[in-house]
């Protein structure tokens, strides 16, 4: 590789990075599916961290230690992430965070931490706003969370609260089904002009 090419490569990266920073500084977010910054080591570091966190959680979950399974996942969603891990983070980061929050919500719900579980679902939905399986899955988990809450309230004799939770669960499941159907329809739709 000659010096000019090397220099060009560096400048391409700098230019793309500069463009990304400019976009971020203006508070813009690239639409889902649109081109973002080049895949870089920082993104990979986050994904690698996420992968490790889920595998650690698997080990604890298989051993029946749900409370221990929560810990590495909580560290992941509260730890450092490209773009701050918020709505302006790269798409992969937002989606992995959303999926992790869905798992966290499920675990916490099984542990009886219904409020915390509900908050995790809300946080995940803020990250997965597009119509994708990620969003659909979050509504599905919301349904499970409310279903478990309803059973818990029923056992405690709070029938009104139990009924309300049961209704919210059904709504969430319906919403999940609608999103999944839309994703399937879009994925199987023929492109314009196709025979």
């Amino acid at each position: 590789m000659n010096a000019r090419r090397w220099l060009g490569s560096v400048l391409v990266l700098l230019a793309l990075l500069g463009g990304g920073l400019t976009a971020c500084s203006k508070g813009e977010r690239l639409p889902d599916g649109d081109a973002g910054l080049p895949v870089d080591p920082v993104l990979l570091a986050f994904l690698s961290r996420a992968k490790s966190a889920h595998h650690i959680a698997d080990g604890h979950e298989e051993a029946g230690a749900l409370d221990k399974a929560v810990e590495p996942l909580q560290r992941l969603v509260d730890g450092p992430a490209p773009g701050g891990g918020g709505p302006s983070a790269p798409a992969e980061v937002r989606e992995v965070m959303a999926d992790t929050l869905a798992r966290l919500a499920d675990l916490k719900s099984q542990l009886g931490q219904h409020d915390a579980a509900s908050k995790d679902v809300d946080r995940g939905l803020e990250l997965a706003k597009e119509t994708t399986y990620f969003r659909g899955h979050l509504f599905e988990v919301r349904g499970l969370v409310d279903e478990r809450l309803g059973k818990s309230l029923h056992e405690k004799g709070d029938q009104a609260g139990a009924e309300a939770a049961k209704k919210r669960a059904l709504d969430a499941f319906e919403k999940s089904m609608a999103i999944q159907a839309e994703v399937i329809e879009r994925a199987t739709a023929k492109p314009e002009g196709a025979p």
């Binding site: 889902d32 599916g33 973002g36 080049p38 798409a91 994708t132 599905e140």
Partner: peptide
Amino acid sequence: VSRSTAGMFSEKFEQGATT
């Protein structure tokens, strides 16, 4: 470039398959 991974998944997410 960084982009959505939604296209990588063609089926509804299974519970317990996050890893």
